[in-house]
Amino acid sequence: MTSSDDPPIQRKLIEILRVIDEHEGAVGARIISDALKERGYPLGERGVRYHLRILDERGLTKGHGYAGRTITEHGRREIEEALVHDRIGFIHARLEEMIYQTDFDLEKERGLVIANITAIKKEDLDDALGILRYLSEHGMSCRIKIIEEGASDHAVAVPEGHVGIATICSATCDGILLKHGIPVNINYGGMLRFDKNQASHYTDLIAYAGTTIDPMKIFISWKTTSVLDVVETGDGLLLANVRAVPDLARDEASKILDRVVGAGITDYVNIGDPHSPVLGAPVAAGMTGISVSAGLNVIAAIQEVGIAVAVEPVATVMDYSEFEVV
């Protein structure tokens, strides 16, 4: 006898839950059966009723006589948890899509760059700008664009009573390398320890290909950065990410990234030795690791003084000319 925990049955159970959840009111076996056939699950009404009994027993659906079933809150949570597997790799794929869309020209310093968008309360804007000016005065790149509430020309809607702060995402570096013919794989987001104004090692890493949430968003939620300490004392934790380029492209990538820093796209770049870890982050054979500081460090600094931030990394692409130095 087939167990109700078998993967094929589990997939059908989840799909039935999705069908019920997509309908208003109770749904009967015939409608569910028709919907499943359209999705590639040829399950007759009798088979649907068998699966519905399992869902009822688990408390995921509720029967309403001849009218059919509705989904319970427990059932909705089951769908959300099942979708985790589907979302694995989505962050990485979206990042690569954004990287491909960039067309920043280093010579002319114009073109599309990837932008992060952060929402803060309107009443916090002056204090936030004060922090950004402080960072800028101490040598950190602070190119931003202020987005008013309700603006509809960007991917992230700024809620009422808030303003958006767009910052340049460091993944723009990868788009620039790609534009110069250098294959690049962005691998990790992490927390990078600085000692005496020098990058020392990564204390934490999250692989972009293995997460359902952007690593930068996770690390900012931890509230463990110390960007202001790095600026003031040279010691602390910054947000950064790791990518890899072929060993043969190492020298050319180094020259390009020097110019990227000059354009204010990022602040700190560390290039590892061929096929060796970069600041403790693993690198595949035949590749050179490159660590780049994240564009969200300036937002992390705002958070460090107690200002609440709602961050959307890799939110959209914007024209470089829209950003101004604070």
Rank of each mutant, 00 (worst) to 15 (best):
G286K: 09
R243H: 07
V326E: 07
K12W: 01
G190D: 13
L132M: 13
A26D: 06
Y202E: 03
A119L: 08
A207L: 10
G264M: 00
K12E: 03
A93E: 12
I14W: 15
I147P: 00
S293R: 01
K122S: 08
L205K: 05
I307K: 01
D6F: 15
E57L: 14
D56H: 10
V326Q: 01
E73A: 10
G236K: 04
M287V: 10
Y188P: 04
E149P: 02
M191T: 08
A263I: 01
V314Q: 06
G89K: 09
M318Q: 14
A240L: 15
G139I: 09
K255D: 12
D247S: 15
K121C: 14
R87Y: 14
D153N: 13
R77S: 05
E73V: 15
V163E: 05
A285K: 10
V227A: 03
G28Q: 15
Y202K: 02
I218H: 09
F90V: 14
V305L: 04
T118K: 00
G210W: 04
G280Y: 04
G175W: 03
A166Q: 08
I71M: 08
Q198I: 02
M318H: 06
D235N: 12
Y41T: 05
A263H: 00
M191N: 03
F219E: 09
D86P: 05
L36H: 03
H162I: 04
T118M: 03
V269Q: 02
P7R: 13
A310P: 06
H162E: 10
L125N: 11
D21P: 10
V317W: 01
S4T: 13
L192R: 10
L13I: 15
L237E: 15
G75P: 02
V163Y: 01
L55H: 07
